[in-house]
């Protein structure tokens, strides 16, 4: 399966398992979603459970919170993460705080799915990676898969979770893994081992990282598309890196991070999002605080630049092989 098919399969399975799961969003119903993630679901489960919404993200999240308060388990879609901001107040002030402020009387077990990330010539408003705006919010969980196998298992776990989950789907790798070499042809998922998705129900626990590759020379902390880009650069340079796909950013798998950096003594953090106050800053601080005496070089952060996401200069912006390669050289060159 590719990632779209894996997500569609997860939704299908959860709709069938739990009559309280409902899907809502712009174009998700009859049409099946602009990325086809909800294709066929309205026909199978009916308009009561899979329905199109007005173009109003505040309304989508607000209504989902109310539906959750009733006892449903809504899975709203925000068509692009760049358009989640009108729903931000409902997510931050409401969904994230509902359990706390009502001492558990009301909960918001909603899963907000949203395509995110760049590398597709999406320009300013179809490329953003706003995960840090959500990892900063107490009460939210933030999940980002990097393979079809993980996308299905993590989405099932997110829907079953009783806390509100922001589920960002890296749209660059919906159809195939992307290694950052934009000038070479992209391979489809069926050539990749993690496109083997088990049939039926399975879940991957939230809050647990995945070791993509074991290694001794350095630790790479990444998620989403950048897992594949970082792995390709390490392989090309022949670096024996330990690559950790964080999968869940909040709550972070701190044990996996500590264990790896204590072993390797070097740490590179890679994300597409802008640098300043990005999630990499939190990761860097955690590694510095908890692995300080094991560090043999300054922690490297490879990120997007502190600019809005550009259109024509996309590959100059994108933290690709050159930027990652430089960081690897600095890490390994330091004595």
């Amino acid at each position: 399966m590719n990632m779209i098919e894996a997500i569609n399969d997860a939704l299908d399975i959860m709709m069938a398992r739990d009559p309280d799961v409902v899907i809502m969003g712009e174009d998700v119903g009859y049409f099946g979603g602009v990325f086809r993630a909800t294709a066929g679901l309205q026909k199978k489960f009916g308009k009561n459970r899979v329905f199109d919404t007005p173009i109003n993200e505040c309304g989508i999240i607000g209504a989902a919170v109310g539906m959750a308060a009733y006892g449903l388990r809504p899975v709203p879609e925000i068509q692009f993460a760049d358009y989640i901001y009108p729903g931000y107040d409902q997510l931050v002030s409401e969904a994230a705080r509902l359990r706390y402020r009502s001492a558990g009387e009301f909960i918001a077990p909603i899963t907000v799915r949203s395509p995110f990330g760049g590398g597709i010539f999406g320009g300013q408003t179809h490329s953003q990676s706003p995960e840090a705006l959500f990892t900063h919010v107490a009460g939210l969980k933030v999940v980002i898969p990097s393979t079809p196998h993980d996308a299905k298992g993590l989405l099932i776990a997110a829907i079953e979770d009783n806390d509100p989950v922001i589920f960002f789907e890296p749209k660059r790798i919906y159809n195939g893994p992307f290694d950052g070499y934009y000038d070479k042809p992209v391979k489809p998922w069926n050539t990749h081992p993690d496109s083997q998705v088990p049939e039926g129900y399975y879940s991957i626990p939230l809050g647990k990282a995945r070791t993509v590759r074991e290694g001794e020379a350095m630790t790479v902390l990444a998620y989403g598309t950048m897992v594949h880009v970082a792995a390709a650069v390490c392989e090309e340079k022949g670096v024996d890196a330990e690559i950790i796909d964080l999968r869940t950013l909040a709550p972070i798998d701190i044990e996996a991070v500590e264990k790896s950096v204590e072993k390797t003594g070097r740490c590179m953090i890679v994300h597409e999002a802008t640098r300043t106050s990005g999630f990499g800053a939190e990761l860097s601080a955690l590694v510095q605080e908890r692995c300080f005496y094991h560090l043999e070089a300054p922690i490297e952060r490879v990120t997007g630049f502190d600019t809005p996401y550009p259109h024509s200069l996309e590959w100059a912006y994108f933290p690709g092989p050159v930027r990652i390669g430089e960081a690897i050289d600095r890490l390994l060159g330091a004595e």
């Binding site: 459970r49 607000g62 109310g66 959750a68 409902q90 002030s93 409401e94």
Partner: peptide, 15 residues
């Protein structure tokens, strides 16, 4: 914020 939430609750009740 409670206004669209009330609508959502009502939709859930109806569905």
């Amino acid at each position: 914020t409670q206004f669209p939430q009330a609508v959502g609750w009502a939709l859930a009740s109806a569905s």
